[in-house]
Design a binder for these strands. Structure first.
Lengths: 224, 224
DNA sequence: TCATTTCCGTTGTAAAAACAACAGACTTGT
DNA sequence: ACAAGTCTGTTGTTTTTACAACGGAAATGA
């Protein structure tokens, strides 16, 4: 557990909190560690959880498969980020999604009630953690809205443009890598993979962009 | 301002807080009131805000219009609910959406920094408000994910079924009203209104459901 | 009350997406 | 090094959607 303190120090949740304080909080927040191999599920749809989870290593997908096998990737969570904030309210009910490790991952569980119930004792940095948590969930909110903005476009091409230009903006560069392979990107944008692949190649042939694997370069027409 | 205290008492944000405490907090949180006529914008895309807003009366749409005039309704916010939580973080940037009053509305603005910065002085109920805020934003998160689940369906029919059966579940009844007219529902699900209208009528003809205006009755095949 | 506007369903056509099936390049593990 | 599996692009067909245009019913407002 102690070996992860330096990692935790660089997460959103513990930003601005010293290593000693984190060490002290681990007990207070009843931290537990679990490791998952690529392809394993951290949580399944229908389960209940009341913990906040921080990714120490690896990468997870928050996703959902429907009756027909169509997969929808709701969100991607990387090392340093967290998830489960949406289910901390008492009446939040069962999980709507699966949580899948897409890389070998290490996840640290925290008792979230301990975080939002301000502990009357020590914990000088507790309020900093509350603020961090608040900012993080607020940011996640914006990310979901952004995803909705991509998905709300009518055509696959528009969805791709919306997504790729946002990624370019985030990276401050017209050249960037995306964290998805083709199938995952299609699942994220809720379109058919082959149709999307086809559209990407058309866009390339029209000179809008270049790509190789998950590395993209947008040309002026797209970024404008 | 005082006249809204009984209303505020029944909002998510002030749940469990007495009227006297709310009155005291109004100053602490620098509350301001604004009224909007149906059709007026509360906020526009690109603006900046660092306030939390509670709807005392009326109804708002969080939405976005693109270059081609396609409107996407991200979310609907009714009396007693709040919005703006996603933009309280310092680096949250400009608003991605418009906020439109779809009914005559009264909105109360709060300085959110005052809320999440635990005031060292009195405010016995401050921590209750922090928790309420946390639960509210967490619930909004789940609603966004739910909307994504609707939108991720491949066909208009599947989107309708996903949305309508969720509404039935929320109402604990196969008979319920929806808060949208046809155009708004289409904008919410990101589909064409006429195509959606067409699909709804087909579903009715096939005996899956009945409707009149915004009142729906689902039959077994749909709810199952 | 009457004129105007909004709302909703209908139809036909053109465009786009889903789907299925396949082949080559590349990875992976043994 | 080789076999098995994965990833990506390609093509053709079918289904679905978007789009445009219209008419009638209902709501609105002067």
């Amino acid at each position: 557990m102690k070996k992860y303190i330096p990692i935790l120090k660089r997460t959103q949740l513990f930003s601005g909190v010293g290593e000693e304080e984190i060490g002290a909080m681990l007990n207070c927040l009843q931290a537990r560690i679990c490791t998952y191999k690529k392809g394993e599920y951290v949580l399944r749809q229908g389960e209940h959880t009341d913990t906040l989870m921080v990714i120490a290593e690896g990468k997870l997908h928050i996703q959902r498969d429907d009756y027909w096998g169509n997969r929808s990737i709701i969100n991607m969570v990387s090392a340093g980020e967290m998830f489960g904030e949406a289910y901390v309210a008492p009446e939040s009910g069962a999980l709507m999604n699966d949580v899948l490790a897409v890389e070998d991952s290490v996840v640290i569980f925290f008792d979230v009630k301990r975080i939002i119930t301000v502990c009357p004792t020590a914990c000088r940095f507790h309020s900093a953690v509350v603020q961090n948590l608040f900012f993080a969930i607020s940011e996640k909110n914006r990310r979901l809205v952004q995803k909705i903005t991509f998905m709300s476009k009518r055509t696959t091409r528009e969805k791709l443009i919306a997504y790729l230009s946002e990624e370019a903006k985030r990276n401050n560069s017209s050249e960037f890598s995306i964290p998805f392979n083709r199938q995952q990107l299609a699942d994220y944008l809720s379109v058919d993979r082959s149709a999307m692949s086809n559209e990407l190649c058309k866009m390339r042939d029209e000179g809008m962009l270049e790509f190789e694997k998950n590395r993209f370069v947008l040309h002026d027409a797209v970024t404008a």
